[in-house]
Design a protein around this nucleic acid. Structure first.
Length: 844
RNA sequence: GCCGAAGUGGCGGAACAGGCAGACGCGCACGACUCAAAAUCGUGUACCCUCGGGUAUGUGGGUUCGAUUCCCACCUUCGGCACCA
């Protein structure tokens, strides 16, 4: 280094153009300045940092810890600009925290199991394992080019047997503690991916697969579930968490708590039909019941006369999920079963219908229909000429006649036409109705949740095998822990047939029963990959630990995660699963604490230059490797941090990044090119003031994820430095102090150039291990402030005053302003508002 | 339909707690350097204007001495949910 000379033609850059401002400044030998060559300094420092292990986190009870975690990515093969955007600002913050004296742990790994590997395998005839691991190899290199301060010693890959051994172990712990169970149930099945999906992986009104958008179908399969819904209530509590409101709202909606009552109706034959209602106060308004087409009782109550119709309807409903549903305002459909139920409060006999607007997956799959006070029931009643009753009278309204109603009255009100509860005032209806059914022994208050148990079985190859053996004598037997991992065989036909590929393996599935030693077969389904990502933050702590999923000593020091960052798309999936997982693990006695991640922040998305989502088909994809080659990683980092608010994201601009490239070159030259001259005291004071004001601002911004203004503040400071330098500040104490602060503030954003300049100035290696500087409040203080003078809220004048100016003095100065007086046009002054140190508003 | 986020110059964005709207950057214009171009440096850059000022933060109201910021209604864009009983 230091060999490259500047071409002579740019020797007079930075020289003031106006002779009057020259103040005798003379540049000393500009040709001695090496050029800024990121392509040379970046790999050099990356190698050095890694060799020296400066980002290795070491447990140190005397130091405050900071576990900064960024969501690991699926190794799809190429590092996308989105990965840079997700990882670079958190890296800058982790670096800032490190300089602040925290013992920072910032790990990285690969979420390597999953469908794309299998799909690629099918398409290109490459083994999923080969594909995945070569992608990982490639991404490792790309990840290193970012210059992130990852602690690579903790790198993990979820498809390594060393990792999934413990994924299987967790499954066994949950099984042992009755948090995992197997049941036959209608599940969502993607006919294109040939596997079942968790409820969360089914999207949209047409209920399509999140990955391939094929509408899912219902299948009755015996599958494994986790008891996520046991934690529905606890998951609604966020007191310990500093999470974005938006994410909490999404989760709360997803969990879907609703309070109401469970009420048992009976068929005329005496079979119970339990329903859930949020409106027990409308019990006397029930005029029919509706069962979901899949409801088991349908078989029993359907009369021979109605059988054909009901069967046909059930068949059609089953196909429904196959069919793209047309519109939101679908007409209600349904069929009468021929059976009748008895209303437990009124003893009225009411018809039982089957309709697909009642979902088997919510509540009990059966409802009491109150067309007078529920819009859906109302529409159904009108469709099939069923009676409507009015039993609630909202205050201040006229009681409508059922035959004249055009919509249901959903408002609350006092009870009418409700037997012994008639006349109950609005405020008491819910409690009175619940008490009434409780006394009759036909119901009770309950809370219902939308959240389902988590279906974790997948009929795919590239995942962690579920460690279960089926024995004809002993049933489903867990594989003993000392026999883990249940290894995924390599020689498998992974073509999707709708069956688990492992089932087609000639030998793998055959084994012996761990209990009786007899012939048995392995479970051939694998686990949902969200299972792998629910606990990776724990494995990072000790990725090669063999005594358990993590080293408890490491856990005690590092957990919980202090800062977790990633995309919003995981709000109702990964982020619910991992919270559930931690709570379940806590209840198994394996971990302590209630929450795994204390602080959560989400980044937005980098869009293409056209403002649209980046996609290959649109041709608007930005490739980070090309950018690094052209500008260097520091410029790419700076641009990503600068160009928009991190949580919002925004469109990429290929001219915008030029600005950041220029900025770093200016930083380079401003600091390295010497000037002769002597600046006056005021210039130096102003320089220090700006430096410390910037430090104050930048410190706040790093702490609060306000990344874009970090870069703009540093740009402002550079502009000030340039002015001071032109005025002869170079080489002064104030200059040296400012440069020192500048590099420390720059280091988290642009680690390479900061390190290089730091070294060139003869400062001790490494800048990334230097302490974060303290703000000199005295130096940061403004000498003069601009006092704003308004008349009737409009700016009329501004005057320079001492910051400590008294209200009286400010008022006097304002009233003395000619501009203000002119604006008053002789009107009398009614009021004067003085905001100390800011403005005076004269109202006249 | 319900829930959430966001609307500020030609563009990306700034404005910590209701007090100078447009920091910083891009782009553009002009100038310097150059034979010339690029690069670099400098200056300017919301709109209107009768040059005094006036108008501007999606639209319309409101609160306030004062609103990009708070409240109400609406419009647009993006995201989530999808008959949840």
């Amino acid at each position: 280094m230091g060999q490259d000379k500047l071409p002579l033609k740019i020797k007079n850059r930075w020289l003031p153009k106006d002779p009057a401002t020259k103040t005798g400044v003379k540049m000393i030998d500009p040709t001695a300045i090496p050029m800024y060559k990121p392509e040379e300094i970046e790999p050099k420092w990356q190698a050095r940092w890694e060799a020296d292990g400066i980002y290795h986190a070491q447990t140190d009870p005397d130091k405050p810890k900071h576990y900064a975690l960024t969501m690991f990515a699926y190794p799809s093969g190429d590092l996308h600009i989105g990965h840079w955007y997700a990882m670079t600002p958190p890296d800058a913050r982790a670096r800032f925290k490190r300089m602040q004296g925290y013992n920072v742990f910032f790990p990285y790994g690969h979420d390597a199991f999953g469908l794309p590997a299998e799909n690629a395998a099918i398409k290109r005839k490459i083994h999923p394992k080969t594909w995945t691991y070569s992608n990982i190899e490639r991404m490792r290199k790309q990840l290193r080019s970012m210059g992130n301060s990852f602690d690579w010693r903790s790198e993990l890959t979820t498809s390594d047997p060393e990792y999934y051994r413990w994924t299987q172990w967790w499954f066994l712990q949950f099984l042992k503690n009755d948090l995992a169970y197997q049941k036959m149930s209608p599940v969502d099945f993607c006919p294109s991916c040939n596997t079942t999906l968790a409820r969360e992986q089914v999207h949209g009104e047409d209920r399509h697969c999140e990955r391939c958008e094929t509408p899912v179908i219902r299948k009755d399969l015996k599958q494994w579930f986790f008891r996520t819904s046991n934690y529905a209530e606890e998951l609604l509590h966020y007191d310990e968490l500093d999470w974005p409101e938006h994410v909490k709202t999404l989760q709360k909606k997803w969990i879907g708590r609703s309070q109401g009552a469970a009420v048992i109706f009976r068929t005329e034959a005496g079979d119970p039909i339990e329903v859930f209602t949020t409106r027990p106060d409308t019990l006397w308004g029930v005029t029919f019941m509706v069962l979901s087409p899949e409801h088991p009782l349908v078989e029993k109550i359907v009369t021979p006369a109605q059988l054909d119709q009901v069967r046909a309807y059930q068949e059609q409903a089953k196909r429904q999920s196959d069919i793209q549903r047309e519109s939101v305002t679908r007409e209600k459909t349904g069929v009468f079963t021929g059976g009748y139920a008895v209303n437990p409060v009124s003893s009225e006999h009411i018809p039982i219908w089957v309709a697909d607007y009642v979902l088997m997956s919510y509540g009990t799959g059966a409802i009491m229909a109150v067309p007078g006070h529920d819009q859906r029931d109302f529409e159904f009643a009108r469709q099939f000429n069923l009676p409507v009753k009015v039993v609630i009278h909202p205050e201040g309204t006229d009681l409508p006649l059922p035959e004249e109603m055009t919509e249901a009255v959903e408002a609350h009100g006092s009870m009418v036409n409700s037997g012994p509860l008639t006349g109950t005032p609005e405020a008491e209806t819910f409690d009175a109705a619940v008490r009434y059914v409780e006394e009759l022994g036909v119901g009770k208050a309950t809370t219902n949740y939308r959240l389902h148990d988590w279906l974790i079985s997948r009929q795919r190859y590239w995942g962690a095998p579920i460690p279960i053996v089926y024995c004809p004598n002993c049933g489903a037997v867990p594989v003993p822990e000392d026999q883990l991992p249940v290894l995924l065989p390599d020689d498998v036909e992974w073509l999707p047939t709708g069956e688990s590929p492992l089932k087609l393996h000639p030998t793998w599935r055959f084994t012996t029963c761990p209990v009786c030693g007899g012939e048995a077969e392995r479970e051939t389904d694998t686990m949902d990959t969200f299972m792998c990502s629910s606990w990776y933050h724990l494995r990072y702590l000790s990725p090669h630990y063999t005594e358990g999923p993590f080293d408890p000593e490491q856990f005690r020091y590092w957990m919980p995660v202090d800062t977790y960052t990633g995309g919003i798309e995981h709000a109702t999936m990964h982020l619910i699963y991992t919270r559930f997982f931690h709570k379940a693990a806590r209840d198994c006695g394996i971990v302590t604490g209630n929450e795994p991640m204390l602080q959560l922040r989400n980044q937005g998305m980098v869009l293409g230059e056209d403002g649209e989502k980046m996609s290959k088909s649109r041709g608007n994809v930005i490739n980070p490797d090309d950018l690094v080659e052209r500008y260097g990683a520091d410029t790419v980092r700076a641009y990503l941090i600068f160009f928009c608010r991190w949580e919002l994201g925004g469109p990429w601009s290929s001219t915008g990044i030029e600005g950041n490239s220029r900025w770093l070159r200016r930083v380079w030259h401003a600091i390295l090119e010497p000037y002769a001259g002597k600046a006056d005291e005021d210039t130096l004071k102003a320089l220090r003031r700006k430096a410390h004001q910037t430090l104050k601002r930048v410190t706040y911004d790093y702490e609060n994820f306000e990344f874009n203004t970090i870069v703009s503040s540093l740009m402002e400071l550079l502009n000030e430095m340039q002015r001071a330098k032109n005025a002869g500040a170079y080489g002064s104490q104030a200059w040296d102090e400012t440069v020192d602060l500048y590099l420390r503030m720059l280091a988290p954003v642009c680690p390479h150039i900061a390190e290089e300049l730091w070294e060139k100035l003869g400062k001790p290696y490494s800048i990334h291990l230097q302490p974060w500087p303290e703000v000199d409040e005295e130096a940061a203080k403004d000498e003069l402030i601009t006092l704003i003078i308004q008349v009737n809220g409009k700016l009329r004048d501004r005057i320079e005053v001492e910051p400590g100016i008294s209200e009286e003095e400010a008022k006097k100065l304002a009233l003395a302003s000619e501009q203000a007086q002119a604006a008053l046009e002789g009107r009398p002054i009614r009021k004067v508002i003085v905001v100390p140190g800011r403005l005076v508003n004269i109202v006249g």
